[in-house]
Simulated scan of single mutants.
Amino acid sequence: MTNMLNRRQFLQKGAAASLATTVLFKGAQAMSAPAAKKPVAISTWSHGIPANEAAWKVLKAGGTALDAVEQGVRVPEADPKEMSVGYGGRPDRDGHVTLDACIMDDKGNAGSVCFLEHIKHPISVARLVMEKTPHVMLAGEGALQFALENGFEKEDLLTDEARRQWEDWKTKADYHPEVNIENHDTISMLALDVHGNLSGACTTSGMAYKLHGRVGDSPIIGAGMFCDNEVGGAAATGHGEWVMRTLGSFLVVELMRQGRSPQAACEEAVMRIVKLQPNFDEVQIGYIAINKAGETGAYCLHPGFNYALYEDDKNVLIDAESYLKK
């Protein structure tokens, strides 16, 4: 009996060692995967199509992924018809348009701003925070002061249409999130350049009619967006509180580090939320991801999330697979 137990223990230890070796090998494969030689841009929602166009011009000219994502998301930031990002964004419940954004480069540097008013391009302010200060995040009045000191102009970002919708909402003042309407409140973009480097950006005006001072996941490194140039990048959209609670973008990248594909990593990140939030009728979450080989993935909780993918000189809008089916 003693010999049988020893043999069983030996086999169990051998199997465990083999499994550990396999996991380490897959993780090493993810970290050492060769970078793609062709550029790729991926961004959230239909406003990702024009954003990708701007990013692609940078990438095709041999520019950096960092420049590409900044130039890309500046397009919806400046579009008054895009009411979930930047100029024209729906205000909070007190009528203030408050903006959040973050950016991250291939060296692990990051910058972000949150609760920023009066500045049309928060993503560019976030980049200056990254490049000109020892900090990662500036907030509120401090972020505004920094922007003005660096040449940004103070503007009224509340358009007539956004004001009209806010005035209508105030008649009842009943905040009720709607899946794929108020919750598609972001543009997130990831890019891989011809040099094999990754960068990401995320910018938003946040949930419509939110409490004054509310900040979502978009400016938080590891929640709204995260890049690791050895592995890949990920970004989120949707109900930010749940992305923050699970550090979703960081999770996706770490799962890719362990050997998961971008698609499988996005699916697992959504499942973490499913396990934590059994009643998700009013919660939408979507993730996009890209690895060093240029492979991409996307997944969401409810049907209705789409993303724009630009590769091989084609810019297409794709409906993401979802946990809940139509």
Rank of each mutant, 00 (worst) to 15 (best):
R260Y: 11
A191S: 08
L116G: 04
V194K: 15
G88P: 11
I273T: 08
K172F: 10
A101K: 04
V85T: 14
G89D: 13
S188L: 08
Q29M: 14
D281S: 14
H176C: 13
V40G: 00
T203M: 05
G108H: 07
L192I: 02
A289H: 05
T171C: 04
N315T: 01
P219M: 11
E77Q: 14
G14L: 14
M137W: 01
A20P: 07
V283I: 15
Y310F: 11
M104S: 05
N315R: 00
D312Y: 00
F25N: 14
A51T: 00
V243Q: 02
F305W: 06
R93W: 08
M189S: 04
V129K: 06
N183P: 00
A51D: 02
R127I: 03
L128H: 06
Y209W: 15
A208C: 04
L211A: 11
Q263V: 09
R257I: 07
L11S: 07
R245I: 06
A126P: 09
G206M: 05
G224P: 05
E311L: 04
G232R: 05
Q71V: 14
A20F: 13
N229Y: 03
A289I: 11
P34V: 12
V231D: 03
E82H: 14
Q263L: 10
L317Y: 01
V252Q: 02
R127E: 08
H96F: 13
A126W: 07
L276N: 12
C202F: 04
R257C: 02
A41Q: 00
N3P: 10
E230R: 11
G151I: 08
L59G: 03
E230I: 01
A35W: 02
T98S: 15
V125D: 05
P262I: 09
L24Q: 13
G216Y: 06
A35G: 14
K132N: 08
E178Q: 15
A293C: 07
G233F: 05
E117F: 04
L192P: 01
M137V: 12
N3T: 13
Y299A: 03
A55Y: 00
G200H: 09
F280D: 11
R74F: 12
H121E: 13
A264G: 11
I181P: 02
H118E: 13
G213C: 11
E268T: 10
A28D: 13
K210G: 04
E321Y: 00
P134D: 05
M130T: 06
H302R: 01
A201S: 15
P80K: 13
A30W: 06
R214L: 06
A208M: 02
D185L: 06
A16D: 13
I318T: 06
M256F: 03
V274A: 08
G238I: 03
G238S: 07
N52F: 00
A36H: 02
S218H: 08
L301S: 03
W166A: 08
H239N: 13
V23C: 12
